[in-house]
Every structure is written in structure tokens, then in C-alpha cells.
Computed example of a mutant assay.
Amino acid sequence: MSRSQRPLSPHLQVYRPQITSALSILFRIAGVATSLGIFLMVWWLVAGATGAEYYNTFSEILGSAIGRLVLFGWTLALVYHLCNGVRHLFWDAGKGLALESIQPTAIMVIVSSVALTLGLWILAYSTGGL
């Protein structure tokens, strides 16, 4: 059998996008983004340990519009990864695996991620943390 006659495995061109596949891909992206955010936290700790001048420079960078956007994205990735991770824990326990519950729990993950992220940022602004 020649190489061109062999059947191809199904791929993105065969399957139509579903919320479950989108959330699965986002879960992996959020995990990577959360891990990369650890470098931001290390930078913050090093800046604090180095001295006031370096810490002020760090604060100016993260206080800029782009810095806040990065922080917001990191917060959203962290919260989304947490919410979807809880969903996976339920799946590991054998709960919520029925087809009827997949889409509602996916929507619940999205809504709770956005709501918790916005809530955290509103709380941070109201206490003067940002």
C-alpha cells in the first residue's frame, strides 16, 4: 500500500469544533501561562529583596497598561485553570461524565472563571492593591 493511499487519522479538518475541545486546548494553554507567570512572581520577589529602587522600577512596569493587561491575563489563566481543574477532579471521581452535563459544566467553568477574575480585580482595586 503506497503512502498516499493509507487512511489519515481524523484531525481538525474532519471534526467540527466543540466546546469540550476548545476548553481542553484552553486548559493546556492556561497551564503554560500559569507556569510562565511564576517567572513574574520570582521577578517580584527578587525586586523586593534587591531594594526600593529596583522594586519601584518593577512596580512602574507592572503598573503600566501593558503590565496590568499581562497581570489580568495571568489571573484569568490561573483562575480558569483552577476552575477547569476542579471540573476534572469531579470527572476523576466519575461525576458529570454524562453527555447532558458536559456542556452545562463547560459553561459554568467559563462563567465562574470570568466572574472570579473580575471579582479578584475589583477586590484588589477597592483595597488599593493595584
Rank of each mutant, 00 (worst) to 15 (best):
A77Q: 04
E100D: 15
S113N: 05
A65P: 02
W43S: 15
P17S: 13
M108L: 15
Q13F: 14
V109L: 06
G73A: 04
L123Q: 05
S101N: 13
T127Q: 14
V114N: 03
L116K: 08
S24I: 00
V86W: 05
A124D: 09
V70M: 12
G31C: 03
I122H: 04
L76R: 02
L62Q: 06
M108P: 00
T50V: 09
T127N: 10
T57L: 12
T117D: 13
L12V: 07
L71V: 14
R6G: 12
L12C: 05
A22W: 05
I19C: 11
Q13T: 14
Y80I: 05
L12S: 07
L26Q: 01
P7Q: 06
S113G: 11
E60D: 14
D92K: 11
G63D: 03
N56L: 12
G96I: 11
W44C: 11
L62S: 04
A77G: 08
C83Y: 00
V32C: 09
I29C: 04
G128C: 03
V70P: 02
I122C: 08
F39D: 05
S126Q: 15
Q13L: 15
L36Y: 10
R68P: 00
M1H: 06
A47M: 03
S101P: 01
F90Q: 12
P10A: 13
S59D: 12
L116P: 11
S112P: 01
L82H: 08
G63Y: 01
Q18W: 01
Q18T: 13
S59W: 05
Y80K: 03
A98Y: 02
A33K: 00
G37N: 07
S101C: 07
I102E: 13
T50A: 13
F39R: 00
L36I: 14
V42C: 10
V14N: 15
R3L: 14
G119C: 09
I19D: 06
S112R: 01
V32A: 14
V32R: 09
N56C: 08
L45P: 00
A49M: 07
Q103W: 09
L71E: 13
Y125L: 15
Y55S: 11
R16I: 09
E60M: 12
Q5T: 14
I122S: 06
G129Y: 10
L97F: 00
R28V: 12
M108Y: 08
I29S: 06
G129A: 13
P17K: 06
G73N: 03
S4L: 12
P104F: 07
F27L: 07
A22K: 02
E60A: 13
S9K: 08
G63C: 02
M41H: 09
F27Q: 09
I122F: 10
Y125P: 01
V14S: 14
R87K: 14
Y125D: 15
T117F: 11
L26I: 08
H88S: 08
G48V: 03
I25E: 02
V70Q: 10
V111G: 07
M1C: 11
G94W: 06
G73L: 05
I66D: 08
W74I: 09
I38P: 06
V114T: 03
I61F: 07
S64P: 09
Y125I: 11
L82M: 11
R28G: 12
S24K: 02
V14W: 11
Y80M: 09
L78E: 07
G48E: 04
P7L: 06
T20Y: 03
S35K: 01
